[in-house]
Simulated scan of single mutants.
Amino acid sequence: MLSALEVFTTVVVGVMVGVEFCVAFVVNRILDALPEDSGQLGRAHGGRMLGAVMPFWYIGSLVLVVLWTVAGWHRQGAALVVTAGVLLVVSVLMSVLLLVPINNRGKTWTPGNRPEDWKEQMKRWDRFHYVRVAVIIAAFALLAAALVRAAL
């Protein structure tokens, strides 16, 4: 049963990393290249859609890592799982303190009501998001290493 939890947790976190990586390096670049107001409208829609899902995914991933830590405390690689959990806590804190406030503003913007500095705010969100992606990639790598270590 613990092996199933380890694999499931690694997959859930890995898919989350893939989605966030895609947002950072593919979707936002596509949106930014669209003409006129299309990119801003796309970012607003993405903020509403992903803003509704990602809190559950981030917290759910953290809960799974905590369960893995508790259930697998005696196994090889437990320190890797704990470190991954700490990184996921950092990613949640970054989200709540840095990214969500910008996202909450941006998801309500239209071409008629957006502030003059909307592009700068989106660039700030992107910079924070790049750091968050790096943090969750590191967490995922640690979980993958712990999974391999536990199998030895």
Rank of each mutant, 00 (worst) to 15 (best):
F128C: 01
V63F: 04
V66T: 08
V81K: 01
H45Q: 14
H129E: 00
A44K: 06
G47S: 14
G47C: 13
V15P: 10
N113Y: 09
A134Y: 05
W125I: 03
G47H: 14
V89S: 09
L97S: 05
W57Q: 08
V66K: 03
R48S: 13
L93V: 15
N28F: 12
Y130F: 12
V13C: 00
M49H: 09
N104P: 02
Y130D: 01
L31G: 04
G51Y: 07
D32Q: 11
G106S: 11
L80R: 03
Q121L: 11
P115N: 10
I59V: 15
G46Y: 08
V89K: 07
T83H: 06
R114L: 11
F128L: 02
K119M: 08
G112L: 12
W109Q: 07
G39C: 14
V17M: 12
R127K: 01
W73A: 08
D126Q: 04
Q76V: 10
V89C: 13
V82H: 01
V131G: 01
L62V: 04
L62N: 04
L67T: 02
G51P: 04
G46D: 14
A33T: 13
M122S: 10
M49R: 14
D32L: 03
L98S: 04
V27C: 05
P55H: 03
L34W: 10
V63N: 03
G77K: 04
T110P: 02
G106E: 07
V65A: 00
N103H: 01
E120P: 00
F56S: 13
V53S: 06
Y58S: 07
V65F: 00
V63R: 03
W125R: 01
R29L: 02
T110C: 03
E120W: 07
A79W: 15
V27N: 07
N103C: 05
S38N: 13
V70I: 15
V15I: 14
Y130K: 07
M94S: 14
G42D: 09
G112C: 05
G60Y: 06
L50I: 13
G18V: 10
G106A: 15
M94V: 15
G46K: 06
V82Y: 04
V92Y: 14
L93N: 10
F25T: 07
P111N: 12
T69Y: 03
V19S: 10
W57H: 04
L88A: 13
V19K: 05
L67A: 15
